[in-house]
Design a protein around this nucleic acid. Structure first.
Lengths: 143, 143
DNA sequence: CTTTAATCAGACAAAAACATCTGATTTTAA
DNA sequence: TTAAAATCAGATGTTTTTGTCTGATTAAAG
């Protein structure tokens, strides 16, 4: 199979976008996120826990507990979520799997792939997630 | 982790590029490929078997047996190898993992990601692997 | 105070990906 | 003719990823 992000990361991205699309300060339970996004509850719970540890979201314990953004959506980029879950290694490793792939010892597609990778990185880091609020709401409404 | 191609696919790409960089019609054993590219022998053997089944390479059995391209390197593109091993599904599925991600029900990054995906596809399908011969030889020489 | 409903921590289980093993068959060459 | 060296097919084993379970803790509300 070919994948860009792990399932964990996909789910994490979805969940954070979901929370960013809610009314400010509203708390979402893991169960709500699980239901709305069709993600296994126990699995998304674990992912939300790790995002809490990363400081991207914060949790409230006890009855009426749940999660919300720990920082304003105008300060969170998609790449921050990717970095917290999958790390940034793939933006720095050879697409063909060759070791020691550097400008001095490039793989056959080094230059071309490097450009693409840079564009992907830019896409994930140029906009903050508040920009996605409306699009996220539209998407969620049809799930 | 974040990955573009599976390990199988990376190894397959490396192996086919390696064979394409050899003198025409020269046969390479799985062991040679394993040694030169530092890929576990039994694993690359399996991958070579499946590439043989796909018709990209051909095998010769018995002593002095091995593998070579089944078609000229001027007719093989990287995407053909990717398709044979990983399939093309990822070029047609949502980067955020949303279901039913279409122009009508786009995910928040649908348009931007679509453009990148198209560029990646073009990179893999625009050139045939005979173009990579020299670069491959250079790369292999330092492994 | 007790019940309820949530997160949290860590163990456990299942599935997929990665890798290896075994034995059969094929072919070359001594 | 036989030994050696290769592919082939299928089973098996290992590791990583994905997903689940259990019990503890926390906090609100009856």
């Amino acid at each position: 199979m070919t994948v860009l992000f792990s399932k964990k990361c996909e789910y994490g991205l979805q969940a954070v976008l979901y929370m960013a699309a809610q009314d400010e300060d509203r708390i979402c339970s893991a169960e709500e996120i699980s239901n709305k996004l069709s993600i296994p509850k126990e699995f998304i719970s674990k992912i939300l826990q790790s995002l809490t540890a990363s400081g991207i979201i914060e949790s409230k314990k006890g009855k009426t507990g749940g999660f919300r953004l720990a920082i304003h959506s105008s300060k969170i980029k998609l790449i921050d979520i990717v970095e917290a879950i999958d790390g940034l290694e793939s933006f720095n490793s050879c697409v063909l799997g060759f070791s020691n792939c550097t400008p001095k010892n490039p793989c056959p597609v080094h230059k071309e792939w490097g450009e693409l990778r840079t564009k992907a990185y830019e896409m994930l880091s140029s906009e903050t997630i508040d920009k996605f609020k409306e699009k996220t709401l539209n998407k969620i409404s049809v799930l």
